[in-house]
Design a protein around this nucleic acid. Structure first.
Length: 886
RNA sequence: GGGCGGUUAACUCAGCGGGAGAGUGCUACCUUCACACGGUAGAAGUCGUUGGUUCAAAUCCAAUACCGCCUACCA
């Protein structure tokens, strides 16, 4: 059997093999409903154009841990997968493709273009899904959804119509963010602000018929061409005389009024504000209040319109330069100041966005936000870690209406029609046959599509078949938890809350777990342009999926970003290999008889490891239950490597090789089987592949590890805590480590066995040592091992103190005593600093009187222990010094 | 402008009121029959700075510095 197992773990074939088997056996398939508790997670749908990055990898790993864990705990788990049609992003990608072959989408026309996008999706759309599978994602792939699917589109239409009828969707002319490259409106959230070192230009607008007038300040001088007023504060003495008069708008020859409005901040700039209602949201409001005209001088393509006069056709930034030069020539550019300000960029193509007056569709967010806010405030949905709740509250409290129409072709076309003859607007799920107003049959559908996030907002219920009342919805809505990064808390989470509560009358998820962002080793955001991306697929190729998953999990501490480097992944790959080899070793000894065998006649190490196993089982369950993934990973790492491998396997080797009789051999084999068995299950949610592989080699297991029971609580098979075994083992381990320490410090070759004497007045300790002397002899490599009551200490020995036992290692002929004297001095110095600290505490009346008794008693004990230890070591040091002198 | 987070061993990070921890790296020794992707041992930190609360502070509070992020209609 062991010859079949390679010395080093080879992940690639194993991963492929098991993933295919799991899928084929329907291991990921949820039941529509049965006796088991339902547990659902909907995947944050990756963009269909996407390529797997580290952010996905972390996100998927954590969800997979939860799903696999809940299955092991007996739940009916639905992990709903799918992709997002990513309107603007996808359209951009396909357009780029077309451009490469010399085609413009307008040549193709809308219908043909959309066909092209679907073709594109057919060819490349499953790439990201296949990459998720590489990560081991146990999604229910039979239920995979796409936001443009027929079912989801139906949900989108229904939601749109209902919100419109409820007055929560409206259409109107407002200032929106416009991307002149994508040629579409954007929601406020889709604008990324960046600080730019810009300029504040001071421009004089001469009072009509004079050459003096108010000076306005602006960062976007080209917009002056669309100015329809100058505003000053009514309280401002400086402008009292000009308020109400007219000024001449330079470069245009137009006359515009000077209006008074308290909105103007007298302390900023010159105190006079140019008003451009068509290109600034504030100016738009002021313009409305004063009935000013709106003149749109920057077109949707980013070029100046006919209303810009001689600047028509110029790019907006060219125009800025031209306007400045012309003003300069006229002597009207009074001052240029350096001015830092935030400039908005399109989050898809990074072009500078332009606030533009435009007719768009909006969601009235206020009422929806209120319910979403309340659901978190009253705890129906919990955000973990809690600190994100504040951000959530703040955003919803200050929410503004959401611009949902996009001037692109790829997406859900808005279900609104206008009658060509009477102009009547009809909003309906299906295309109307005739106008309800005039019975005209020429109805034209609004060409715009909806914001992609509009359909994503419905994801938790649209994927389960809504608006039909499906069994799936009944079993799995509300979902258990949403796992996502904070970057889409507003974009997506908050909007799902709003829509879920409005249409399902219940929250979409009980918990929201916000995980970290993955950054590079220097803490920088990974991006293609910086060239610092660590590609998960490359990592998987090199180290295996389990290593990547374990690394990400170990670093997924709450509330902190993950700095990833390949070096770290290597370390966790080594752990996988360690686990593999511990199993290889185990398989040399255990057989099917050891499965589920009785747990009696246990040796001390057996009892000890079972206690540790129970402890780590409980803490792993607790950690996953509370989303402390890193605690789960590091707890298991510690247990497997440093308790199971370093100590337990070493301790039971003599028993396994039959040196301790059949009874103890059988007992240890049973325990070994049991520990390995349970450990595999505990690790499976984090590292599914290697655990499944070992599981199948482990004798006495049947079928997939995915069908096993998680060894916690009642499913622990009667293993019990054993604090006595833990105390005894701690004592033995401390002695072994102490002796090894001497060996190391004295440079004694491992092959050289040592003579050791332990003296202790405690009979129980003597008993413990006598009963377990083989462990000492074996692990500390001893020639002789004597246990005696306290008495005269021998000469020429190195000393270690453990509790009240004095361990003497005979050194005569092995090393020189000066070395041991130095070692003792160092040890004593260390103890002295401890004693000093403890003494100070005990001499403090405040401490003795006010601290809890238990704490005081503990400090007293410690103090006594250290004092004893010091006395013993000092006595031996004296002997060393005499020996040296002699 | 407002808000949040970080600052702990050379590096990356846990810990968040009662003895400073882990992984990696480093040093020494070891090719001992699961594993050199290994073993044993070791060195290594005024827990950003200053003040306060407390018998007790890396841990709580208040300032402050530096770094990072989010958010915002001051032209």
């Amino acid at each position: 059997m062991e010859s079949l197992l390679s010395k080093g773990y080879e992940p690639h074939d194993v991963e492929q093999k098991w993933y295919e088997k799991w899928e084929a056996d329907g291991r990921f398939t949820a039941s529509e409903g049965d006796d088991r508790p339902g547990y659902a997670i909907v995947i944050p749908p990756p963009n269909v154009t996407g390529v797997l990055h580290m952010g996905h990898s972390l996100n998927i790993t954590l969800q997979d841990i939860l799903c696999r864990y809940r299955r092991l705990r007996g739940d009916n788990v639905l992990w709903m997968p799918g992709t997002d049609h990513a309107g603007i992003a996808t359209q951009n990608v396909v357009e780029r493709d077309l451009t490469a072959s010399g085609i413009d989408r307008h040549q193709l026309g809308r219908e043909k273009f959309i066909e092209k996008v679907w073709e594109w999706r057919k060819t490349y759309g499953s790439a990201i899904i296949n990459q998720l599978k590489k990560l081991g994602a146990s999604c229910d792939w039979d239920r995979e959804r796409f936001t443009m699917d027929e079912g989801l589109s139906r949900a989108v239409k229904k939601v749109f119509v209902q919100l419109y009828e409820e007055g929560l969707i409206y259409r109107g002319n407002y200032i929106i963010n416009w991307c002149p490259r994508c040629m579409t409106a954007l929601a406020d959230l889709e604008v990324e602000h960046e600080d730019h070192e810009g300029h504040l230009y001071h421009i004089m607008y001469p009072v009509a018929g004079t050459d003096k007038g108010p000076i306005v300040a602006t960062t976007r001088p080209e917009t002056m061409l669309g100015d329809t007023a100058v505003a000053v504060n009514p309280e401002d003495e400086r402008y009292r005389s000009v308020a109400g008069s007219e000024v001449e708008l330079p470069l245009t020859g137009r006359r515009i009024p000077v209006i008074a409005d308290p909105y103007v901040d007298m302390t900023f700039g010159t105190g006079a504000l140019k008003i451009t209602p068509a290109h600034d949201p504030n100016d738009f409001e002021v313009g409305r209040a004063h009935n000013l005209a709106s003149i749109k001088v920057i077109g949707d393509d980013g070029k100046m319109t006919a209303d810009a006069g001689k600047y028509e056709g110029m790019d907006r930034f060219e125009c800025r330069k031209a306007v400045l030069a012309d003003l300069e020539a006229l002597g009207l550019l009074v001052k240029v100041e350096a001015h830092d300000h935030a400039v908005g960029h399109c989050y898809r193509c990074h072009t500078v966005v332009e606030p533009n007056l435009s007719k768009q569709w909006f969601v009235k967010a206020g009422p929806l936000a209120e319910t979403a806010l309340a659901a978190v405030k009253d705890g129906r949905t919990r955000i973990v870690p809690e600190k994100w709740e504040n951000d959530y509250y703040k955003w919803l409290e200050n929410i503004r209406d959401w611009c949902i129409s996009r001037q692109i072709w790829w997406g859900h076309q808005i279900p609104a029609w206008t009658c060509a003859s009477c102009g009547r607007l009809v909003v309906a799920e299906e295309a109307p046959d005739r106008c309800p107003e005039c019975a005209g049959t020429d109805l034209i559908q609004d060409p715009d599509v909806l914001d992609t996030w509009f359909s994503s907002a419905l994801w938790p219920f649209s994927t389960m078949g809504w608006p039909d009342e499906t069994p799936l919805l009944k079993t799995f809505y509300p979902t258990a938890v949403l796992v996502t990064g904070f970057d889409i808390l507003f974009f997506w989470v908050a909007r799902m809350m709003m829509m879920g509560l409005h249409f399902m009358k219940d929250v979409p998820f009980h918990d929201v777990y916000i995980h970290a962002l993955v950054r590079d080793e220097h803490g920088k955001k990974m991006s293609k342009s910086t060239g610092n991306v660590i590609d998960p697929l490359t990592i998987i190729e090199k180290y295996g999926t389990d290593a990547l998953r374990l690394t990400l999990t170990a670093f997924a501490a709450q509330g902190r970003d993950i700095k990833l480097s390949e070096k770290r992944i290597e370390g966790y790959r080594n752990f996988i290999n360690k686990l593999w080899n511990s199993a290889r070793f185990s398989f040399m000894h255990i057989s099917v008889e050891n499965a589920a065998a009785d747990m009696s006649a246990l040796s001390l190490p057996d009892r000890w490891i079972l206690d540790r196993l129970k402890t780590v089982s409980t803490s792993t369950a607790e950690a996953i239950d509370t989303y402390r993934f890193n605690d789960a990973a590091s707890g298991l790492y510690q247990f497997v490597w440093h308790e199971f491998c370093d100590w337990y396997l070493e301790l039971i080797k003599p028993a396994l090789y039959g040196n301790k009789g059949e009874k103890e051999q059988a007992a240890s084999k049973n325990v070994l089987w049991r520990v390995l068995h349970d450990t595999l299950i505990l690790l499976h949610p984090i590292i599914p592949f290697v655990t499944e592989e070992i599981w199948h080699i482990l004798p006495g297991t049947d079928g997939s590890i995915m069908t096993a029971a998680f060894p916690a609580d009642d499913a622990d098979g009667g293993i019990s805590y054993d604090s006595q075994a833990v105390r005894d083992m701690d004592c033995l381990m401390a002695m072994i480590t102490g002796i090894r320490n001497i060996r190391g410090e004295m440079n004694i070759a491992p092959s050289r066995t040592l003579e050791v004497l332990v003296q202790t007045s405690d009979e129980k300790t003597r008993q413990l040592l006598n009963q377990n002397r083989e462990f000492m002899v074996d692990l500390a490599r001893l020639e002789t091992f004597d246990v005696q009551p306290a008495g005269e200490k021998p000469k020429g020995t190195a000393t270690v103190i453990v509790e009240d036992a004095v361990i003497s290692v005979f050194l005569e002929g092995i090393i020189d005593f000066a070395k041991e004297a130095a070692r003792l001095e160092k040890e004593i110095a260390k103890i002295d600093t401890e004693i000093e600290k403890l003494t100070k505490k005990l001499n403090n009346p405040g401490f003795v009187n006010k601290a809890p008794d238990a704490v005081v008693a503990k400090v007293r004990d410690q103090h006594r222990e250290y004092a004893d230890k010091k006395a013993q070591l000092a006595a031996n040091l004296e002997k060393m010094q005499t020996l040296q002198a002699g």
